[in-house]
Computed example of a mutant assay.
Amino acid sequence: MAVFMDLNVLFSADRKRMQSLIETAAHLGFSTVAINYVFEPTAKKKQEVPSPMPINELIGQLPVVQGRSRPIRVLNRLTVVMSEASHFRPNATEYRAFDLLAVQPTTEKLFHTTCMLCDVDIICISVTEKLPFFFKRAPINGAIDRGVVFELSYASALRDTTMRCYTIANSVCLMESCKGKNIILSSAAEKALELRGPYDITNLGVLFGLSDADSKEAVSSTCRAVLLHAETRKTASGIVYTMKSQQEVLEDSAGSEAPESQKRPKTPGEWGFGRGRTHS
């Protein structure tokens, strides 16, 4: 059974609105949602990166996901709107408070830089206006090779006819360059009425130019890949875990009963190591 995710639910200081968004997402069958804090720095004055609000302050008890026996998972995400290269600070300590890191470039040069160099999880594509540049395959392929995904949101298409045209046009242009690879579909919803179910989003993805399989992955497995990429980004591009083998457990239990003088140190080959998994 597929696990569906919506990695872009816009943050609001209104607690009732956020509670309604999270409860509606769980009712629609989303197992994971990410609350998106949008940060748009300007050159005129210095602005502080917003701090994520603790989940227990937004909603008292997490609702159970429809069709599952577990509560919904809520993550925090930061989206930096870049109009200058200096707006994104890769080593900023404020970024570490967020589970996901996204960038929305506003020029062709910044789009190329983001695809090739920026250590982020998601590249947002503006769908509310006509883009001032065309998508080129070289930077897009560079982002795909590094495991970065492109995000298309649909809530703006529900608000205005003009934005609906821009959403479809920009989405189709992106699909012509990326061929449906590394795409996620999210809502960017401001209120519960703008949320749609996973299968409705899948049908919408077909309208954007995705195949049936790619459209389903855009709200499930590709979103899961984003979470794994975020974890590896925080752990030097890899996750290494250790686990005890059955033989070692027996030796430990036997060694605990033996005198200290009879215990021997374990050799490196006797330790059980899980292989580190690296996501580029």
Rank of each mutant, 00 (worst) to 15 (best):
I123G: 04
E57K: 11
S261T: 11
K216Y: 09
T93C: 00
K263S: 00
S256D: 11
L228F: 11
E190Y: 02
A26N: 07
V103Q: 02
L193M: 10
D212R: 13
A218K: 03
K46L: 11
I122N: 09
S20F: 01
A225S: 12
G180T: 04
M18P: 02
S69D: 15
I201Y: 07
R159I: 04
D200R: 07
P50M: 07
P52S: 08
G180L: 04
A236T: 08
F134R: 11
S221W: 03
F88D: 04
S211H: 00
E108G: 14
T222Y: 00
P50W: 09
K234H: 09
L158I: 03
L100A: 05
L101F: 07
L21K: 00
V80W: 01
W271K: 14
V103L: 09
A2S: 13
H87C: 02
K181F: 04
M243R: 11
P50V: 09
T114P: 04
R233C: 11
A157T: 00
R275L: 05
G209E: 05
H27Y: 11
I201F: 05
V149L: 14
M5Y: 11
L193G: 05
K266H: 14
D99K: 06
I184W: 02
D145A: 14
V33L: 03
M82I: 06
D145P: 00
G274S: 13
A92Y: 03
H87P: 00
R277M: 11
A254V: 02
G269Q: 13
I22G: 06
R137I: 12
V149Y: 10
V120F: 08
R77G: 04
V33S: 02
R196K: 15
C124Y: 07
K45Q: 13
R70S: 13
E248M: 10
M1V: 03
S220I: 04
R137Q: 15
A254Y: 05
D200A: 12
L117T: 09
K234Y: 03
E129V: 02
A230Y: 00
T113W: 01
D121H: 12
Y241G: 02
A43I: 14
P71K: 10
K130Q: 12
G197N: 08
V172L: 12
E129R: 10
G274L: 14
